[in-house]
C-alpha cells in the first residue's frame, strides 16, 4: 500500500507540470473534461501486428486536457490510470500522461501520442535480496518502474462529441536487464462527455 502510494505520487509529480501548463495556456474543451475508457489486450513483445501474441488484458481510464482545440485538430494531454493482468507473469497498475496530436477528417480522426508514467509492477515470480550476512530474504512483491509509451490511434467522433476509437500502444518497463522490456497493447475505447 505504501508502494502504491509512492507510485501514484511519482506519477502525479511527473504529470503535474504538464497539467499546470494546461491551466496556464490551453483552452478547455467547451463541453468540459471528457472521460476516456478503454479495454486493452497486452503482451510482452516488440511492435508487431503479424506476430501478435496472447498476453494479458487491462482497463484504462483517463481524461484529456487541451492545449489547442480546433474543429480540425487537437493538441492534448491525456492523463490515465490503468491496470492490466498478465496471467502467470505479472500485474501492472500505472498512472501515465501522454502528449498527443489529433487530426479530424469529418467525423473520423487519427492521433499519435508520446508519454511516460509510473508503473507499480507485481511480477508473479518472487525476488530475493541479499542481506548483510550473505543470506537471502524475500524482496517486496511490488516494484516501481518507469513506463515510456508511444501510441497511434484512429476513431470516430459523433455529433455530441462522444467518440469511439482504437489505439495501438507500445510501452516499456524500465529499468530492465536489457534496458527496457517492451510491451504492446491494443485498446478499444470510448471518450465520453458528461458535463455539458
Amino acid at each position: 500500500m505504501k508502494l502504491l502510494f509512492k507510485c501514484v505520487l511519482l506519477a502525479g509529480c511527473l504529470s503535474t507540470p504538464l497539467v499546470r501548463a494546461q491551466d496556464l495556456h490551453p483552452r478547455h474543451n467547451r463541453s468540459g473534461l471528457p472521460l476516456t475508457v478503454t479495454v486493452f489486450s497486452e503482451s510482452i513483445s516488440l511492435p508487431t501486428i503479424s506476430k501478435m501474441q496472447k498476453g494479458g488484458v487491462g482497463i484504462k481510464i483517463g481524461t484529456e486536457l487541451y492545449y489547442r482545440n480546433r474543429p480540425g485538430s487537437q493538441v492534448f494531454q491525456a492523463v490515465s490510470l490503468g491496470y492490466y493482468h498478465h496471467p502467470r507473469v505479472q500485474n501492472g497498475l500505472f498512472l501515465n500522461s501522454e502528449l498527443g496530436y489529433r487530426k479530424y477528417f469529418g467525423g473520423l480522426y487519427a492521433d499519435a501520442t508520446i508519454g511516460g508514467g509510473a508503473m507499480l509492477l507485481q511480477p508473479m515470480a518472487p525476488s530475493y535480496v541479499r542481506n548483510e550476512t550473505g543470506g537471502y530474504q524475500k524482496a517486496s512483491s511490488h516494484q516501481i518502474k518507469f513506463m515510456p509509451s508511444l501510441g497511434l490511434g484512429a476513431g470516430y467522433r459523433f455529433r455530441n462529441n462522444t467518440a469511439i476509437f482504437t489505439h495501438y500502444e507500445v510501452f516499456g518497463e524500465m529499468p530492465f536487464s536489457y534496458a527496457v522490456l517492451p510491451h504492446q497493447a491494443l485498446h478499444l475505447g470510448a471518450r465520453l462527455n458528461f458535463n455539458k
Partner: peptide, 21 residues
C-alpha cells in the same frame, strides 16, 4: 465520474494484491 474513479481505484488495488507464485 467520482464514483467511477473510486470504483476503478478499488478494483485496481484489490487486483494488484494478487498472490505471487
Amino acid at each position: 465520474t467520482t464514483y467511477f474513479w473510486t470504483a476503478m481505484a478499488a478494483v485496481c488495488i484489490s487486483l494488484s494484491a494478487c498472490e505471487q507464485d
